[in-house]
Amino acid sequence: MLVYLIRRIGQSLLVVAVMATLVFLAMYAVGDPVDILASPDADEFERRAIAQRLGLDRPLWEQFGIFVWNALHGDLGRSFVYNVPAVDVILQRLPATLELALAGLVFSILIGIPLGVLAGLKPNSLIGRSVMSGSILGFSLPNFWIGLMLILLFAVELRWLPAGGRGPTTSVLGLHFALFTWDGLKHLLLPALTLALYKSALVIRIAQAGTREVMLQDYIRFARAKGLSSRRIVLVHVLKNILIPVVTVLGLELGSMIAFAVVTETVFAYPGMGKLLIDSINRLDRPIIVAYLMLTVVIFVIINLIVDLLYAAIDPRVRLSEAKG
């Protein structure tokens, strides 16, 4: 297990290094930030001064060297726009997005697994068919529209929940979370549901397919021949087997929920990282974009690592064969 862990961490570091290079080069290709930062009537001398101040006049390899060196010290540059360290700007927004993504994840599990298993147990029944057709809606309805409809229903018509923004936050370990207040939860509910809808549809389909497959296995037949109740067969024998694909997909999807909650955050005017990214791209605020992408890469890598470990916890076969390698 330890060997496995060390090897996986090594692979993860390699991915981060490769991504850093790609991100840096890509940023270089996007455009010259001087064009935006300098006033339109600035002359060549002023433009050069700006470039010099930002270090943009140096050769590419030198800029890259400085970037890597600083990055290793946890410094991903100062925002051109806010003139504070880019990492700080992002970390300030991170808890909001993290909260949103985790709530979305919890919703998609709570909605997706029970419905998916139900549909898988009775694929030809009315309820099974309805769930599967419903999941197609979940896939195809655009995220922003769902968000707007939820706002219309719960915030405008029923007035049960706030229409947007983030509730009051409390400080936990130096980070600001809204999760621990009732009002904060109310603010979180609608955007999290919006974000969870597509993922629930995904989980439903995976759980349904998994359940149908598992139910045909000999070990289910043997479990029935032992006289187990169908409750135990579904909750233990089936569920544990379908968790393997569900965990894999949800792990990957959690990354994308954190990184690309852009649309949902925009609809609900939710102050998360996604909104920050869009603003920064518009203003060519290179350090913020780089820092955002690097952070995203790190988050993805960490989630994948956790998923792999979870995998080993669920599926004993993975544990053994990987430990040998």
Binding site: Q217, D218, Y219, R221, F222, A223, R224, A225, K226, G227, L228, S229, V236, H237, K240, N241, I244, I314, D315, P316, R317
Partner: peptide
């Protein structure tokens, strides 16, 4: 029927590789 299965009536199957649930001890 469930009360009889496993108690008075038992069954074993062809493929020992698939009759035991792979994720349970």
């Amino acid at each position: 029927l469930r009360r009889l299965r496993g108690k008075r009536l038992a069954m074993i199957f062809q493929d020992p590789m698939t009759t035991l649930n792979p994720v349970l001890r």
